[in-house]
Write a protein that binds this DNA or RNA. Structure first.
Length: 482
RNA sequence: CGGGGCGUAGCGCAGCCUGGUAGCGCACCUGGUUCGGGACCAGGGGGUCGGAGGUUCAAAUCCUCUCGCCCCGACCA
């Protein structure tokens, strides 16, 4: 039997990515205890390890949202149908996936409530009451919330009926200021996703066919998963004055004229956890970027004899003290599992660095570190671990981003025609295909129809697409997508 | 929503064709020995076979309906 066949005997073993990527994904999400299925169809339970990831993401993104002048607030879960219906495109976009509350207590409601699929309507309604003067602008509010969309086909983190996200909703005096906000937040997302999640993205604008229901323009960051499919990782919408007009959000300008505000909305969701899994994971399991990993380093104590045990325990206590407040550390001193078992377990769960402490290490007053991304080993003296380990974690973070970027770049091709794009995807190739696009809906629709690839975005950074740049067309990235 | 597949112990599966009172591996519990890449021995606990109805002396097994999940397509963060 080969090694891989032998390994299959273990419960915690995973399907190889190359055998069945979807299956690998489902297994790793559940076995690493990120999430589990719930008794509610299409809904999942986010387990502590997965929620810890989300909390770290929240903290890092929330900081950026506040640094750009926004405040958090909370709007209600239930949205009156009458409010939702005010904006035709919007309600058209969400109608098929709304869940409705029709009863309260034992009485049927006169007007049913939608469980929010997003909050433009309720927030627009409130803004119309809050905004009177140009002095009230801009309004820069974000909320962290759950939303619900009645999805027919669900997948853990990628598409569930209920999911967690943040949604920013802003109102501005001028179109230019709103557009500036849209692009500012897109850049915040790009920076957050690349630097904290180590996921490289193409930032750009959506086509009319792909933009958000009710938006004037939608901007997006698009990531590439290891199976070659693209994933929309965040969106930022220029809402123009559509919602301002239907919700009557107006202000008096300096000359006393009544004007409609210009609005934006932008969001990222727990889908980013799915992106993280599929960007970095390998056949052994997750590989988490240290910046968001719930456990940055796991300590595995090793002993043979009773006297080893006390020496090791003592050493581990010192190690713990040295690293307190510097690294998110977990010591696994459980007796029921061997060190080897623990190595496999924490590799599967993606812990960036493992610290092995056995009698040999105690004798040398050092710790054997093993990084998850390359399995590179390095013995670090206790005296320098407080400096070296954070540096090592930074190296892992940088390395994951670099690996993902190399993959994404290698999977991005420049093609010279619609036909070439169709042929590319129909040959079974994946990744991003860049092409000069005449802007016609027919061009886009034909590729979608014949090759199953959609226009992911028109990238704003054209530095690597120079040969496709023409005055009469725009550069468009096509991909098979989640 | 269309096509395909699967529901038997916590997980992975066998048993179903050819009905006869449910089994294997891992996990779990107890005791002991172990521990530097998934330890071993001994003992033990756990299942209305997804659900409902039917056929039969007898149903995990045959029939009907139903629910759920997975994969591939159409729609979406």
């Amino acid at each position: 039997m080969s090694e891989s066949q032998t390994r299959k005997q273990f419960v915690e073993d995973l399907t190889d990515q190359s055998d069945d990527f979807s299956r690998w994904y489902n297994e790793v999400v559940r076995k690493a205890q990120l999430a589990d299925y719930s008794p509610v169809r299409g809904s999942m339970v986010i387990r502590p390890y997965g929620y810890g990831l989300w909390e770290n993401m929240q903290r890092l993104l929330d900081r950026r949202i506040k640094e750009t002048g926004h405040q958090n607030a909370y709007f209600p879960l239930l949205i009156p149908e009458s409010l939702l219906q005010l904006e035709a495109d919007h309600v058209e976009g969400f109608a098929p996936e709304c869940a409705w509350v029709t009863e309260g207590g034992r009485e049927k409601l006169e007007e049913r409530f939608a469980i929010r699929p997003t909050s433009e309507a309720i927030i627009g309604h409130m803004y119309s009451r809050w905004i009177e003067s140009y002095r009230d602008l801009p309004v820069l509010i974000n909320q962290w919330a759950n939303v619900m969309r009645w999805e027919k086909v669900t997948r853990l983190f990628l598409r569930t009926s209920e999911f967690l996200w943040q949604e920013g909703h802003t109102a501005h005096a001028t179109q230019a200021e709103a557009r500036e906000e849209v692009l500012r937040m897109l850049e915040v997302y790009r920076d957050f996703v690349e630097n904290e999640l180590a996921i490289p993205v193409y930032a750009g604008q959506k086509s009319d066919a792909e933009r958000f229901a009710g938006a004037q323009d939608t901007f997006t960051i698009e990531a590439l998963m290891k199976d070659g499919k693209a994933l929309q990782a965040g969106t930022s919408h220029d809402l123009g004055q559509h919602f301002a007009k239907v919700f009557d959000i107006t202000y008096q300008d300096e000359s006393g004229q009544r004007q409609h505000v210009w609005q934006t909305s932008w969001g990222v969701s727990t889908r980013l956890i799915g992106a993280l899994v599929m960007t970095h994971g390998d056949d052994q399991g997750l590989r988490l970027p240290p910046q968001v990993a719930p456990i940055q380093a796991v300590v595995v104590p090793i002993w043979r004899k009773a006297e080893d045990r006390s020496a090791v325990t003592e050493f581990v206590a010192k190690l713990r003290e040295t690293l307190a407040g510097k690294v998110r550390l977990h010591v696994d001193d459980r007796d029921q599992h061997s060190p080897g078992w623990k190595y496999n377990e924490y590799e599967m769960r993606g812990v960036p660095v493992r610290l092995e402490v056995g009698p040999k290490d105690v004798a040398q007053q050092a710790i054997m570190s093993v990084r998850r991304d390359t399995r590179g080993k390095e013995s670090i003296p206790l005296a320098s671990i407080a400096e070296r380990l954070p540096a090592l974690l930074s190296e892992v973070q940088a390395s994951l981003l670099q690996q993902a970027r190399d993959f994404r770049d290698a999977q991005t091709v420049l093609l010279d025609s619609k036909e070439a794009v169709i042929a590319h995807f129909n040959e079974g190739k994946r990744g991003f295909a860049a092409v000069a696009w005449d802007g016609s809906a027919a061009f886009e629709a034909e590729i979608k129809e014949k090759a199953g690839a959609t226009l992911r975005c028109m990238p704003s950074d054209l530095s690597r697409f120079g040969s496709l740049v023409r005055p009469e067309s725009r550069v468009a990235l096509f991909a098979r997508a989640y």
